[in-house]
Design a protein around this nucleic acid. Structure first.
Lengths: 353, 353
DNA sequence: CAGTTTTGTTCAATCGATTGAACTTGTGTT
DNA sequence: AACACAAGTTCAATCGATTGAACAAAACTG
C-alpha cells in the first residue's frame, strides 16, 4: 500500500522534472536547439525561439540551475556575509545589495558570522562550496587572521568588503570615512561646550576602529582640546562594555563632560550607567553613539549618532561587485570607496534647546 | 602584457581546481575509486581510503558541490525565508536553525521578503532554482494567496512553516500557541486590576493574529471581563499603526485601562502616544506587547511582552525538516508543534511594585 | 547554374561527481 | 587443483544544460 503511494509520488515528481529534453521532444528538435533558443542564441530563428518558449511555459519548465552552473561555472549567486542580521545597519545594507543585484539576475544569499571567527570561516567554506559568483562581506569583530578571506581571492572569486575591512586584504572596499566621522562628532561636541571628551572605542586591531580613534585624537588637537589617554578605551563595544567603561570614567577624579562611543550599543550601556548614577544627559555629560541603530531614537534621551549610509554602502558594494565580474581579470586596480558620514544630532548631545 | 597576466591568472585558477581526477592520477587509480573512497564506500579498502584522503588534503581538494548535487539531486542547502532580518525573533530563529542544521552538514541560506508578497514569490523562485533540499519559512504580512507555497510542495521540496503559517497550507508547522498567549496576557492584566482591556491586533486573515484576537475575546469572557468591539482593532502592527490606534482609543468616551498589542512595534507606537498625552503607564493604562524585541527592555517604561521562544522554534523547525527528509515519502502525516508562550512582565504593566 | 554565404539545427564533448555492473585479483573451501 | 567467494577496483552511463564544430538547407552572388 505504501509502496503504491511511493510510486505515485515518485511518478508525480518525475513528471514535475521537465528538462530541455522534454521540450525538444515536444517540438521534434534537439535539446541543444532548445538550450540555444532559451539563451537567445543568434543562430536560432525567432520562430523556433518563440515556439520553444511557449512550450517551456506550457510545460512549466524550470531550468536546473545546478546543471547550468556546473557547465558555465557560474551560479548567479552572490554571498553576503555579515556579523549579525539583527543590526539596522547590516540588514539595511543587505537589503540594498539585494535590491541592486536582483535586477541583474543574481540571487543573494545571506550568511551571518555572529561575530565569531570560526563561524566566519565555516560560512566562507559554505559559500565557496555553493560556488557563489562573488562574496560581499563585513568582518566579525573577533577576526584577526585573514587567511580565510585570502582563500576567496585565491580561488578567483570576487570579494568586496564593506564597513569592516582591512587594508592588508587587498580587495575592493566600501565604507564611510571613519576618520572623518570622528571630526564631525568632536566638532559638534565642542560646539556644545564640551571640553573633556572621552572615547569608548573598538579594538585598534580593526581598521575602522583604529581610524575612529586616530580621527578622534587628531580632531581634539585640531579643535584645541586636550587629549587624555585615560579617556580613551578599547573594547568589544557591546552594551556591557559600555557600562563597564562608563563606570570607570565616572570613577575618575575628573570625569569627562562628553562621551563618544564607537557603537550605539556601547553608548546605550553608557547611558544606562549615567542614568543609574543620576548624571544628567546631555547637561552633565553629552553622549554620541555610532551607527544609527533603531533604538537610538527610542530611548530617553534619544542618542545622537553617526549615520553610516547603509543604502549607499549597499548599493555601491553591489555595483562594485558587478563591475568586478564584468571587467573580470583585465582590471586589477582596487576600488576603495569612502562615503561621507553624517552626524545625526539628537537630545543626548544637544545642550541648547 | 595584459595577456600574459591573463594567462597566469587562468593558470592559477586552473591549478586551484583540484578534481577527483587529479587525486586519481596522483595515486594511479581511477576517479570512481577516489569518489568511493571519499564517500566511505564499503568496497574500498581502508588503505586506499586513507591514501585518498591524505592526497585530498595535500592537494587541498574542494569537492564541487554542484556536481555532486546534480548527480545526487541533493544540494545540502536549506532555504530560510523570513519577513525581516532586523527583528530579534526572526534573526534568533534563523540562528538556531543554522546551529542545528550545520551539524547535519546543511548550509543555510537566508532570504528576506521584507513583508512583501512579490518579494516572497521571487525568493521562493530563487530558492527553488538553487535546488534547496528544503525551505523553512514564515509568511510576509502582505501575503494572502498561497500558490507560491503550494508550488514548493508540488515540487516535492519539504516545506516547514514557523510562526506565520496558514492551516490551509497543509505543511509542517512550528510556533507558539497564540491563542493561549492571549490568555496569559489577559490573566496578568486582570490581576493588575485592569477592567477595560483593548487589543491592537493584526489582520484576521493571518492565522496567528486571528488566534490572538479569538484568544483575547475568549480570555476576557473566561475572566469575566466585558468584550467591547470598539476596543479591538486590526492593522499592520507597525509603529505608526500603534500610534494611530492608540489615539483613537484615547479619544473614546471611555478609554481602556490596558492595551494588549499583538506586536512590540505597535506597542511602542502606543507608548509614544500615551506619553505625548501625559497618560501614565502603567498606572493609568497598562501596556503589553508581543515578541520580546530588544527595545522592549530599553524604553521607559520597559514593555511587558510575550516571548515567542525563538530558540525552541528554530531548533524544532530544523528538527522537523530533518525528520521530513529522512522519513521522506513514507510519512505523510503533518507535524504541527505548538510551543508554550511565556509572558515577560516588565514595568509597562506592573502596577504593584 | 556553380559557388559562396547565411541561417538553422544537430552532434558530440564537457562540467565533476556518483553508482551499479563488470571485471580482476587473492583467499578460503573441499 | 578446482571452484566459490569476497575484496578491490575499473568501466561506462548518468545528472541537465551548454557550446563549438559540423552539417544541411536555403538564400544570395556573379
Amino acid at each position: 500500500m505504501f509502496n503504491r503511494l511511493n510510486k505515485l509520488i515518485a511518478f508525480l515528481r518525475n513528471k514535475k522534472k521537465i528538462t530541455i529534453k522534454d521540450i525538444a521532444n515536444e517540438l521534434g528538435i534537439t535539446p541543444s536547439a532548445v538550450s540555444k533558443a532559451l539563451n537567445n542564441h543568434p543562430r536560432i530563428s525567432d520562430q523556433t525561439k518563440e515556439a520553444v518558449k511557449a512550450v517551456a511555459k506550457k510545460l512549466n519548465y524550470q531550468p536546473n540551475n545546478l546543471a547550468s552552473a556546473l557547465r558555465k561555472g557560474k551560479s548567479n549567486l552572490v554571498g553576503v556575509m555579515i556579523p549579525r542580521t539583527n543590526s539596522n545597519f547590516f540588514s539595511s545594507v543587505v537589503e540594498n545589495i539585494e535590491q541592486r543585484l536582483s535586477t541583474e539576475g543574481y540571487n543573494v544569499i545571506i550568511a551571518q558570522s555572529n561575530e565569531s571567527f570560526e563561524r566566519e570561516c565555516k560560512n566562507i567554506e559554505s559559500l565557496l562550496l555553493i560556488q557563489v559568483d562573488g562574496i560581499i562581506a563585513s568582518m566579525a569583530n573577533e577576526t584577526m587572521s585573514l587567511e580565510h578571506f585570502e582563500k576567496i581571492k585565491s580561488k578567483g572569486v570576487p570579494l568586496i568588503m564593506f564597513d569592516r575591512g582591512e587594508d592588508a586584504l587587498e580587495v575592493d572596499y566600501v565604507g564611510i570615512d571613519d576618520y572623518e566621522s570622528s571630526f564631525l562628532v568632536v566638532e559638534h561636541l565642542k560646539n556644545q561646550g564640551c571640553k573633556r571628551i572621552a572615547h569608548i572605542g573598538g579594538y585598534r586591531h580593526t581598521r575602522i576602529y583604529k581610524s575612529r580613534i586616530k580621527g578622534f585624537e587628531d580632531a581634539l588637537k585640531k579643535y584645541g582640546l586636550p587629549v587624555f589617554d585615560a579617556l580613551i578605551s578599547e573594547s568589544s563595544l557591546l552594551i556591557e562594555d559600555g557600562r563597564t567603561i562608563m563606570k570607570q570614567l565616572l570613577a575618575l577624579p575628573e570625569p569627562p563632560d562628553a562621551v563618544f562611543a564607537a557603537s550605539d550599543f556601547a553608548a546605550l550601556g553608557a547611558l544606562q550607567v549615567l542614568e543609574e548614577h543620576d548624571v544628567k544627559v546631555p547637561e552633565d555629560i553629552a553622549l554620541v553613539g555610532f551607527s544609527n541603530e533603531t533604538f537610538t531614537s527610542l530611548v530617553k534621551p534619544s542618542i545622537s549618532t553617526v549615520n553610516q549610509r547603509s543604502e549607499i554602502i549597499g548599493t555601491m558594494a553591489a555595483e562594485t561587485f558587478l563591475n568586478r565580474v564584468n571587467d573580470s581579470e583585465w582590471n586589477p586596480k582596487l576600488n576603495r570607496a569612502m562615503i561621507e558620514p553624517e552626524l545625526i544630532i539628537r537630545n543626548s548631545s544637544l545642550k541648547n534647546h
